[in-house]
Design a protein around this nucleic acid. Sequence first.
DNA 1: ACTATAATTTAGTTGAGGCTAAAAATTTGT
DNA 2: ACAAATTTTTAGCCTCAACTAAATTATAGT
Lengths: 226, 226
Amino acid sequence: MYFCGNVYFMTRSEENYIKTIFHLGSKGSRDVSTNAIAEIMETKPSSVTDMIKRLSEKDLVNYKRYQGVSLTSLGTKTALAIIRKHRLWEVFLVEKLDFSWDEVHEVAEQLEHIKSDKLIDSLDRLLAYPKFDPHGDPIPDKNGSFKERDRKLLSEVPVHTAGLCVGVKDSSTTFLKFLDKNGIALGNRIKVLEIEEFDGSLNIEIEGRKMQISNVIACNLYINVE
Amino acid sequence: MYFCGNVYFMTRSEENYIKTIFHLGSKGSRDVSTNAIAEIMETKPSSVTDMIKRLSEKDLVNYKRYQGVSLTSLGTKTALAIIRKHRLWEVFLVEKLDFSWDEVHEVAEQLEHIKSDKLIDSLDRLLAYPKFDPHGDPIPDKNGSFKERDRKLLSEVPVHTAGLCVGVKDSSTTFLKFLDKNGIALGNRIKVLEIEEFDGSLNIEIEGRKMQISNVIACNLYINVE
DNA sequence: ACTATAATTTAGTTGAGGCTAAAAATTTGT
DNA sequence: ACAAATTTTTAGCCTCAACTAAATTATAGT
């Protein structure tokens, strides 16, 4: 067994599998199926089976044939480390390099595989230890622990609720550009002034100024209720 | 032929070969030998031959068997793009993340392979378009052009010469750590007070204080003569 | 010029990580 | 309960980028 720091050496591909298994596993609580992994990773089920065997031998996943797969504690720890790196890089790209929300993902997918503890800790410090990435997803700390932000869709809160805009559900370019055009950005303080019964549109106050937004928009904006 | 931006898609390994050939080629002006490449890259000559054939088919190098190898103009352009990325990341690591100059290389070796034009251009802007990296080596601009700094080895200047320390010839960790320990850093003002005939050692004044350095050190420090 | 040595290339192998096609196990519908 | 459909695995093959061992070409010494 080869150690590199406190974690086994892993290839890029292995890391991508671990990450995918983590994401799939944290939604449904049952074991993750070969087919599901193949679909997300745009590969074939047979290739997934091959890789799962390798990961199983490295004690990163629990695997019994035909029974699906789940992460071991080592696998989970590894997944959280990768996710931490991905999300920290996303913050860096947006805060320091002026990337927009929809441009960060592809580059972060590459940066998340850079191996250097010092690098990621220094980056964390440069960014002032952010707790959430530009899409509002939580960033695990060095030990892998994070708090799920108590966020709600703007469409689901009662009148007079206020909070900070912390993320989007739909992260398509179209939607993000629309938000930009209307001066809605992450971190803006939003207060719901009135909810229109008829079409579900909202009168809101955002950063001091008043505006009206449709129900569709409200269904795709998360706020962190105060 | 697959394009990615304005350059063919290249694997990490291909990029490393191109970079090595560039470095070897810009020193001696003759064609680079298989053995030399193998030694630098810590691989076997036969592996180098394999790779050279691939690079030759992609029109990145000129190759005739038993005759050594040189970069085509496309290859040179590619090499300069990689070197630009490497050196910009080095500046980032030192300036923004407080890495010392002996810690940057290993991480920059990874970061230089990240593919994103926007990323590297934004990084350039964040760093205020630096012209030299932390070791004093010039950073090519977007078009691959750069000016070689007018620098001389400390061992080659006459007595009483003064200038700023602008780089090192040997950038091994050992040497850089040694410099740190002795309080010699990039940007320090150095004046040669006396040259010892016997062993070539120098009495110098650096940032106001006096010290003696061996000829070996003088042979590896560049100064920008005033 | 001709051999000895050094450099380089070829041939064949390996491992990672994909693929297809076919077999086996599981799940589902009646 | 059992045949049909689906999921998963096996078997065998491919490419990239390394390797070893053997063959070939270049270079150097006499």
